[in-house]
Amino acid sequence: MLESILRDLECSARERIAAAKAPQYLEAVRIEVLGRKGTLAQISKELGKLPPEERARIGKLLNSVKQNLETALDSKKGQFDHEALRERLESEWVDLTLPAPGTRPGALHPITRIQTEIEDLFISLGFAVLDGPEVETEYNNFDALNIPPHHPARDMQDTFWLTDGHLLRTHTSPVQVRGMERLGPPLRMIAPGRVFRNEEVDASHEHTFYQLEGMMIDRDVSVAHLIFFMKTLLSAIFHRDVEVRLRPGYFPFVEPGFELDIKCLICGGGGCPVCKQSGWVELLPCGLVHPNVLRMSGIDPEEWNGFAFGLGLTRLAMMRYGIDDIRLLQSGDLRCLTQF
């Protein structure tokens, strides 16, 4: 009799669990059937009235009904949880093609980019990065670099003069003088910065541009070392192996002085419009530091010598980014500057 009650109970409870439409129905079944005052608890109270062998058999049955229903409830609850999670995920669709809020990053100036890159390169080679003023003395800009007054080389650098007799540096070479005087030999230094030439402005000429002057002074520095160093440096700047050649160039602060050409990176030396069909592109002036320059900075040229070079940062930036009008660099025009 109890046996059939238990079997009916299990059967009807299973039906209700299966038919449950929401978690709260399951909870109702659990309380009604499995709860402390539930049907199964009532029945177990009846067990004591049964004879011992009956009691054991029905007790076992009761336990199995209890377990079966618990499993059924858990499994159904699992289904509900799963369904609920699915629904939540479904409802949380987000369109990530929408733009992110907040401000877009701005851009660094192309010359800043090139300059910091090259500064880092030189620092890794043990060079100090030095600064100098944009307004210079005539002495530092010319005389100390072996360009005395009325030297025709002064024509090579049309100069902005200030009414107080100072001038706007025409190259960053005066920083060499400051570097030699401050740090003395041995010395490895670069001086990047803004320089000025009194020139009419057009697509390829500017009165304001950026240079990086470099200098290395040690006990034994030769032309062979200069070539090696420039080749290493330029290969790092252009991220590829660069072939260089030296030819005579005249700059009063070096002797011998060179123009350094690199094999045209566009045509590989075969000839193209960029290299004017010559296969070579003029890149930078360099040379061994003139003994007069060393002497004027208090360095004994019999004991020390070195090389110096000037890298046109403006020109490098134009080459790197394909900028064809030099005026854009100082135009402040965001249509250009935001591109980098």
Binding site: G126, D131, R188, M216, D218, D220, A224, I227, F228, R245
Partner: peptide, 23 residues
């Protein structure tokens, strides 16, 4: 001819350059 000169690495002392903190 400068092209007849074989490039060679300069022998210099390994020193840490003074940092230009302001820059």
């Amino acid at each position: 001819g400068y092209d007849t000169i074989t490039p060679s690495a300069p022998m210099v002392t390994a020193t840490v350059p003074p940092a230009n903190e302001e820059r």
